[in-house]
Amino acid sequence: MLKILKTRFKQGCRTILFPKAKAPDLPQRYRGRPIIAGQNGSIDLGKIFFNPDSDIVYSNDYSMATSKREDLVLSQEREMALARALNERMLKIFGRSLKLRQVSAGGCNACELDLNVLNTPVFDLSRFGIQFVASPRHADGIVVTGPVSRNMREALLKTYEAIPEPKLVIALGGCAISGGIFSDSPQASHGLDTIIPVDLFIPGCPPHPLTTLDGLLRLLGRISS
């Protein structure tokens, strides 16, 4: 115990103060929201893989989560519409307590790992009253990762049904949003929103924990744009 206390004394509290303070600077290599340069039309954040050798130019901006699927499509014409807060009634219920159940519907574990990072001391999701729970009965929403393969489809639907109303659905990562690299496969579905209504889309392959946190907090009205 003394050892732990000594360490604590040395290190202090490791949680970042985001969103009250600015998020820590991300490294140069970080590929955030793409910049639409010139006339190359539109980019669908739900479909790109944020890989370095594509011809897309990336910015350092981690805010990418949206409330609607079509808002993920960036184009020259309009500003990106980031996720909006829930309505007042929902905020009253979920504002200070949101329990989530994670469903990995054929995911590759990248999204799951980066989601797990949110539970580390640095991001500390629990300070917002957000927590991951074991049973969908205890949950207020599901976080779905992966392309929803055919074998996982029914399990996902069962989980969705098991959650008491009112409930939220969060699609995390490109696979869940559009099928990602599996979008051509007959074994995968083409977007979670074709199966169940989705309240929050968090793009990325995988999404940076800050992107996820930013999305969740926008949904809960803790960050207003």
């Binding site: 509290c13 500390d124 629990s126 300070r127 009253g129 927590q131």
Partner: peptide, 10 residues
């Protein structure tokens, strides 16, 4: 939360 070095739930 204190022992883990985090802020923790209210």
């Amino acid at each position: 939360a204190f022992f883990a070095g985090r802020i923790g739930p209210p």
